[in-house]
Design a binder for these strands. Sequence first.
DNA 1: CGGTTTGTTGAGGGCCATCAAGTTGAGTGG
DNA 2: CCACTCAACTTGATGGCCCTCAACAAACCG
Lengths: 208, 208
Amino acid sequence: MKSGLGKEPLRRFRRHEHLALGGEAQDRVYRLDEGWACRYTLLPDGRRQITALYLPGDVCEPQWVISSKAELSIVALTDVIATEIPLGSIRNASDEGVSELIDALMTNFNRQSDWIVSLGRRSANGRITALFAEIYSRLQQNGRVRQPCTIPLTQQDIADVVGLTPVHVNRVVSELRRQGLVQFSGKTIIVPRPDEIDRQQDGMGLAG
Amino acid sequence: MKSGLGKEPLRRFRRHEHLALGGEAQDRVYRLDEGWACRYTLLPDGRRQITALYLPGDVCEPQWVISSKAELSIVALTDVIATEIPLGSIRNASDEGVSELIDALMTNFNRQSDWIVSLGRRSANGRITALFAEIYSRLQQNGRVRQPCTIPLTQQDIADVVGLTPVHVNRVVSELRRQGLVQFSGKTIIVPRPDEIDRQQDGMGLAG
DNA sequence: CGGTTTGTTGAGGGCCATCAAGTTGAGTGG
DNA sequence: CCACTCAACTTGATGGCCCTCAACAAACCG
C-alpha cells in the first residue's frame, strides 16, 4: 500500500480495487486525475448493474459531502490516480468548494434521470450510442478529450452500464465498427466522430 | 408531519394538470397532501418515461431548494391537493426545514440508483413487483397506508414507470391477480399482502 | 347516451438472452 | 523465446420475453 508521507494527497488504485464499499463511512471525496471508476450494485445471482460512471476530472462522490456515507460500492475500472479531498477541509472553508460539489451532485442526479429514460425506452443500439455520446460530452467538459476520444472500458463494463449481456454488446459494437461509427485500437474503442454517434441515438425504437 | 397548520396556501391540481414545466424557474416546493404525481420525459416519438413518482406525503421536488429550476416536467397522475412551500420561507428559517428537504433529495437520489438496477437487470415481472413493493414501503413511511394498500395508477402509468408497454403490463398484472398477489377494485389495483409481493422480486431473471 | 379513456385478449414477430465453441492477446515463468 | 494461463473478444444456433398490431369490452364523463 502506498503511504504518502508528508502532505501528498494523491492516491493510487489498481484496476478492480475499491475506492469505497457500500455502507462505509466516508470522510473524503476523490477527484479522479487519471482513470475511470464506477458505482455499482450486485444482484443475488452475481450480475452487476453500474449506476454511475466516473471519468477523469470527475469528483467521486459528491453526495458524501452531505451524507458522509457510501450507499453503494465504488470500484476502479482502470488504474486510477486520484486526489483525496478531506471533507473537513471544505465544510468550513469557503462556500465555493461546497457549491462546486453540490453542482456536481445535481449534475449526477439529472444524469441518473436521463439514464432511466435510456434504460426504460431505448434499444440496445440507442443505449450504447447514447453512452458513447455522453462519455465524449463529459470528457470534453472535463477538458480531457484527446484526439480522438478513446474509451478504456471492457465490453463487460459497457454491458453492465447499459443493462445488456456482453455478447450482445459485442454484436452491437461490431456493427457500429462496420458502419465506421467507432474504431478499435487493440481492445479499446475509439469514437472518431462523436457528433455522428450522437445523431444515431434519436429515433431508436423500444427495447425488446 | 409538519404541524404549522393553516397559513400555508393549499393548491389543487386536476389529473393531467402540470405542477411544473421543464425549464421553468421554481420559487416553491409542494408537499402532496392527497394524490399522486410524477416527473417524466417525452421521447421524440411521443413515448413517455416516468423518472420519479411522488406519493401522498412526499415533497415535490426537493432539489428545487438547490437549483430553483425544474429540469423536467411534473404532472398530476390523480387529482392532487398540495401545500405550497415558498423557498424563501425556509432558506432563512431554521435549518430543520432545509435539512429535511436535503434528506428527501438524497432519498430520491438513492431511489433513482435502485431504479436503474431494476430497469437494467430485472424482468417485467420483477420490475412490476418491485414497484408495488416500493410503493407500499413508501406509503407506509409516509403514514399513508390504508387497509389494504391501493394503487391509483393506470396500467399506462405503470408501463411508463417500468419501461414496458401497457399491453404487457396488463398481462403481468393479470397473472399476479391469478396468483392472488394483487386484487382489483374496479380499475384500481390493491396489494393485499405486500410482504409476499416483496418476496417475488428476488431472483427475477434478466429482462429480454 | 355518444365519445373517450382504460382494460383485455389473441396472433405473430423481432430483439436480445442463453448456450457453446472458438480465437486473440497480454502477462508469466520456464 | 516459447509454452502456459487467463481475461477479453468473437461468432453461430436456438429460444424466450416482450413488442406490435388488431379488435373488442368495459368503464367513465359530459
